[in-house]
Design a protein around this nucleic acid. Structure first.
Length: 418
RNA sequence: GCCAAGGUGGCAGAGUCUGGCCUUACGCGGCGGCCUGCAGAGCCGCUAUACGCCGGUUCAAAUCCGGCCCUUGGCUCCA
């Protein structure tokens, strides 16, 4: 049975074939650590985890890398802020460290397969600078006032992932940057100087208690002077460092398709001349009151709160009750239903296992129990491999759904394994 | 405006690529019953005449084709 996956690149459900038949190089675009992780993040994590586990189940050796973006103006904006016991940190690195700590704790609480490595931007600035230098040398990028921008017109396939045409793309980045760009869609690879005060003010949590300070964030020495890496380049640098020029699977939230992933493709392929990722899988977003759950909208439930309140498996159950590539709506009632659902599944599993093992004198295994369990398991595997992986072409049709793990087809045993 | 993902029963959510009995799957809810010392859990049956709208193709469409409407996301930090 072959696994098929929905590839954002083609919009088609394609047979999955890693470059090396035994290994899967999986890169998941992780978080920018400027706040506590919320259920929207958790939903994507659980789907990534499920895919990771399924690939292992199929016999692949999964090399899973998951970055942490710890250089960002939103992080700088929280320097000196007080939260609970004390300050989040006195500089950008400290604030990031605080949130990375919470991030890893939250991930553990959801029983996720751990990534092999969680690289951070601050630890990979030299690689980033190398990439940018190469891009400049090869005329894919240009320097302007100490900043470096990627020249989208130099990369003919730009827009391929998100199906955008260059003419339709609006300007990327803040206004101040735009004057320095040749094309409005050009994006920053390197930004001169530190974070300016206006940008920080925009991201301040004004309703919270913090000490007024004027941090500018960390800067690094580069061939273009002191500055900071642009937003997209770190993923190229880190994925290439750990997984090489071509990934098998690149995952992330749907909100990253454009511009983030589009830009990653452009800058990476411009350097290597090789495809950056063979398969792009995007998890759709968790909504709350018909809006996406997000830190910036403030309509979120933190992972920490939710795990305490509902428990790990019910939450996983909740996330897996909708396809990874369709939106899901959060509500207390929906999660409470997942608690029930999980409980029933667990009970059924225990009883079936007891009966099959003859461990419980009160329940005897029906002669067909084992057989039916096997059938269910087979149906589950088929769904995971085929129907479970994605909808038909979205470009020729109008619909797309996926159920990596629709519990409907899961036997208790199979579900328990997850 | 451009790009993307969706619009299925009271709720939630499969099925759409590979048209056809589609089982509107699995649930939740509701109704009736069974089991049970009580409660919980469990079990059985029923309920819901659906597939955004309008056309087209076909013996046959939720599924294919065309047009339209609506929702959400992206184009600014974003899982």
């Amino acid at each position: 049975m072959t696994l098929r996956v929905l590839n954002t690149l083609s919009g088609e459900r394609e047979p999955f074939e890693p470059a090396d038949p035994d290994d899967v190089l999986l890169y998941y675009c992780g978080l920018t650590v400027s706040d506590d992780p919320h259920l929207g993040h958790a939903r994507t994590w659980v789907h990534v985890d499920t895919i990771h586990r399924w690939l292992e189940h199929l016999g692949y050796d999964v090399r899973h890398v998951e970055n942490v973006t710890d250089v960002n103006e939103k992080i700088v904006a929280r320097v000196g802020e007080r939260d609970g016991d004390g300050t989040l940190g006195d500089d950008e690195r400290e604030v990031a460290a605080t949130f990375i700590d919470r991030l890893l704790t939250d991930m553990r609480s959801l029983n996720l397969r751990r990534a092999e490595v969680h690289p951070r931007v601050t630890e990979h600035v030299p690689e980033i600078i190398d990439l940018v230098e190469t891009l400049v040398e090869e005329d894919y990028a240009y320097e302007s006032d100490g900043s470096v921008y990627f020249d989208v017109t130099a990369f003919p396939d730009y827009g391929e992932l998100s199906n955008q045409r260059l003419d339709d793309v609006e300007a990327q980045g803040p206004k101040a940057e735009r004057a320095e760009k040749r094309h409005p869609a050009d994006f920053a690879l390197w930004k001169a100087g530190g974070v300016d005060a206006a940008a920080i003010a925009e991201h301040r949590y004004d309703d919270r208690d913090y000490e007024a300070a004027a941090p500018t964030g960390e800067t690094w020495e580069s061939p273009w002077g002191e500055g900071r890496p642009g937003w997209h380049i770190e993923c190229s640098a880190m994925s290439m460092t750990y997984l090489g020029e071509t990934l098998d699977i690149h995952m992330g939230g749907r909100d990253l398709v454009f511009p983030h992933h589009e830009n990653e493709i452009a800058q990476s392929e411009a350097v290597t001349g090789e495809p950056f990722a063979r398969y792009w899988l995007h998890a759709d977003l968790l909504e709350m009151d018909a809006e996406k759950m997000s830190s910036s909208l403030g309509n979120f439930v933190t992972v920490h709160e939710a795990v305490e309140r509902f428990g790990t498996n019910p939450l996983r159950m909740f996330f897996l009750s909708a396809s990874y590539n369709s939106t899901q709506t959060y509500s207390d009632a929906a999660v409470e239903e997942a608690i029930e659902r999980w409980g029933r599944l667990a009970t059924a599993y225990d009883r079936a296992a007891d009966a099959l093992a003859g461990a419980d004198a009160r329940t005897t295994a029906d002669s067909t129990l084992g057989e039916r369990a096997a059938e269910s398991h087979e149906a589950f595997a088929a769904a995971m491999n085929d129907d479970g992986c994605g909808p038909p072409s979205r470009r020729s049709r109008n619909s797309a759904r996926t159920s990596w793990a629709s519990p409907s087809t899961a036997t208790p045993a199979a579900a328990r394994r997850r």
